[in-house]
Amino acid sequence: MPTSIHAPAVSFQAVSKEYATPHRGRFKALDAVSLDIRPGEFLGLLGPNGAGKTSLIAILAGLSRATSGRVLVQGFDVQQDFAQARKRLGIVPQELVFDPFFSVRETLRFQSGYFGIRHNDDWIDELLHHLGLSDKAEANMRELSGGMKRRVLVAQALVHRPPIIVLDEPTAGVDVELRQTLWHFIDRLNREGSTVLLTTHYLEEAEALCHRIAMLRQGRIVALDQTSNLLSAASHTVVQFKTDQALPSALAGFARVTGRIVQLPAQSVAEVEAHLAALREAGIRIDDLEIRRADLEDVFVKIMGEAGANDAAVAGGVR
């Protein structure tokens, strides 16, 4: 039974998940994760590959059973009250799963039927319009591109008007147009009261959309705060530039390099000047120099680095 009208939209209560593996024995994918998502909140769940994000969502969706702990959706236990919990969720999975025998409209009508909803064409038409699928309504699912199939997955998740929307890497590998279309629509639904849980590797999306951020590492929450608080706590700036040359060893140890783009954290104006002086002395030619405030990606890298260092210290017996 639901706890009360004031219950969290989703409540993860000391959720752990272990798997048996042939070479590693028992592997703990989730380690006592506790997290409440507030009604109407837009929460980002971030973490590197293997952090446990998909395991947590699979347990939320009822596709996997927690080793210990429990998950409530608007007060309904996802195992004991599966039907009540599931109809309150609209889940967009990472994988492109579709039935090749139906058109887009037929797919959405069948999905409506799974939840006992008849005569849903007005809402289906609205979904098709907002997700740029109106001209594909009668097309067979097999005929659609990968990006169009992902739009249909989003429509399927929303077709029963769930109060809680779960987006598991919804924009992975899709074009800019779909990303903008999707976020405009999801942001509107959130402003109208829908609760949204998002996992993404596009941290600029999380920074722009999410009210709060939870960061997972090795199955544990290592940070949980308002997005604005996480950003304001990052007091450092970043020296960013492009170069085709190898950095001097004094900078290479802490630089973040992506292709030609180099990012160097700096805690003060003096440290910015020291970075630039080291580049000049090494004869490094740079382009597109920019000095900016730290963003969510910088915060994420810092928190994951600190959590990794703490884990290594504990493992090594350092007190």
Rank of each mutant, 00 (worst) to 15 (best):
residue 198 L to Y: 03
residue 89 L to G: 05
residue 150 R to I: 04
residue 41 E to I: 02
residue 191 R to E: 05
residue 50 G to W: 09
residue 242 K to N: 14
residue 133 L to C: 08
residue 110 F to V: 11
residue 58 A to Y: 07
residue 200 T to N: 09
residue 140 N to L: 14
residue 296 L to R: 08
residue 276 L to E: 05
residue 115 F to K: 11
residue 250 A to R: 14
residue 314 V to Y: 04
residue 287 D to P: 00
residue 80 Q to G: 07
residue 203 L to N: 04
residue 203 L to E: 00
residue 248 P to Q: 10
residue 54 T to M: 10
residue 183 W to M: 06
residue 161 R to H: 11
residue 42 F to L: 07
residue 54 T to G: 13
residue 152 V to W: 00
residue 64 S to W: 02
residue 2 P to D: 05
residue 140 N to E: 03
residue 70 R to D: 01
residue 3 T to G: 13
residue 71 V to D: 00
residue 129 H to V: 01
residue 31 D to C: 06
residue 288 D to M: 10
residue 300 F to S: 06
residue 5 I to F: 10
residue 302 K to C: 01
residue 302 K to M: 12
residue 180 Q to L: 10
residue 92 V to P: 05
residue 284 I to A: 11
residue 260 R to Y: 02
residue 47 G to E: 04
residue 47 G to T: 04
residue 158 L to C: 09
residue 200 T to Y: 04
residue 163 P to N: 03
residue 100 P to G: 04
residue 150 R to Q: 13
residue 199 T to V: 05
residue 33 V to D: 02
residue 191 R to V: 00
residue 106 E to D: 14
residue 134 S to R: 11
residue 193 G to W: 01
residue 177 E to S: 12
residue 261 I to C: 12
residue 147 G to T: 10
residue 273 E to S: 14
residue 269 V to Q: 15
residue 290 E to K: 15
residue 25 G to P: 10
residue 81 D to G: 04
residue 148 M to P: 09
residue 273 E to A: 15
residue 124 I to P: 01
residue 162 P to S: 02
residue 98 F to R: 10
residue 19 Y to C: 11
residue 9 A to E: 03
residue 11 S to I: 01
residue 277 A to H: 12
residue 170 P to M: 07
residue 8 P to E: 02
residue 276 L to A: 08
residue 23 H to S: 15
residue 224 L to V: 01
residue 295 D to H: 10
residue 61 A to F: 00
residue 119 H to D: 15
residue 239 V to R: 10
residue 117 I to F: 08
residue 105 R to D: 01
residue 188 R to V: 00
residue 263 Q to F: 05
residue 211 H to N: 12
residue 30 L to H: 08
residue 142 R to N: 11
residue 272 V to N: 05
residue 269 V to A: 15
residue 239 V to F: 04
residue 87 K to A: 02
residue 88 R to W: 00
residue 215 M to V: 15
residue 67 T to C: 06
residue 208 A to E: 13
residue 104 V to Y: 01
residue 52 G to L: 02
residue 10 V to C: 12
residue 291 I to S: 11
residue 132 G to W: 01
residue 114 Y to V: 12
residue 195 T to S: 13
residue 24 R to G: 14
residue 206 A to S: 07
residue 275 H to T: 09
residue 194 S to G: 02
residue 298 D to V: 03
residue 289 L to M: 02
residue 206 A to I: 00
residue 199 T to R: 07
residue 296 L to C: 07
residue 56 L to E: 07
residue 118 R to W: 10
residue 87 K to H: 13
residue 86 R to F: 00
residue 31 D to K: 12
residue 145 S to A: 12
residue 15 V to S: 03
residue 203 L to W: 01
residue 87 K to T: 09
residue 117 I to H: 09
residue 154 V to Y: 00
residue 112 S to G: 06
residue 98 F to P: 07
residue 1 M to P: 14
residue 3 T to H: 14
residue 279 L to T: 07
residue 87 K to P: 02
residue 144 L to R: 15
residue 61 A to L: 02
residue 5 I to R: 14
residue 312 A to F: 09
residue 297 E to K: 12
